[in-house]
Design a protein around this nucleic acid. Structure first.
Length: 161
DNA sequence: AAATATTACAACCGCTACTAT
DNA sequence: CATAGTAGCGGTTGTAATATT
């Protein structure tokens, strides 16, 4: 811990897996002061971590509204559909799956779904059949697809510009 | 039962976008 | 308007857990 350093600029930060104690410090600090100003959070929470690391930990793990546990069939189906529509825009996809994070979905895609990519056509055909999708979810997807297309398009336009 | 391979996931890194000065 | 600092994104990696031989 401790200041450790001589005058020269860089502190050596912790890296790698978070300990329970670090988690606790981080959540406690954030509950009081909010999830903003990550560099300050890192320092003031007494964590020898960079802000970026704290942010990631909070967003992907500690944040209270995170849904844990396995991706349901319905969620998987939604991921497949959205990915077909959006490509690797994980954050956008995650936005349509309450409680799931971009990182989690990206991971899920890379490990579970990329092997299904071998039977890609089959998988996508299945997901386009409405019967396999619960009504509620279907509404969500269809409602959002317009939004999402717009976002996609405007980005494309911007890029092309 | 041990050794080795595979899988799954948390966390990192570099880059870009956004915001404020 | 330019520039600096911060937040966010997505690719990639390290490794712990699990499966296979």
């Amino acid at each position: 811990m401790a200041p450790t350093n001589d005058g020269s600029a860089k502190k050596v930060m912790n890296k790698g897996a978070w300990t329970e104690e670090e988690d606790k410090k981080l959540s406690q600090y954030i509950e009081i002061h909010g999830a903003k100003r990550w560099t300050a959070v890192a320092v003031k929470a007494g964590l020898n971590r960079c802000g970026k690391s704290c942010r990631l930990r909070w967003l992907n793990y500690l944040r209270p509204d995170i849904k844990r546990g396995n991706i349901s069939d319905a969620e998987e189906d939604l991921i497949l559909r959205l990915h077909k529509l959006l490509g690797n825009r994980w954050s956008l996809i995650a936005g349509r799956l309450p409680g799931r994070t971009d990182n989690e979905i990206k991971n899920y895609w890379n490990s579970h779904l990329s092997k299904k990519i071998n039977h890609k056509e089959k998988a996508l055909e299945v997901t386009t059949s409405k019967e396999t999708m619960p009504e509620k979810l279907l509404d969500i997807v269809q409602g959002d697809i317009e939004d999402v297309k717009e976002i996609g398009n405007s980005k494309a336009n911007f890029d092309a510009n």
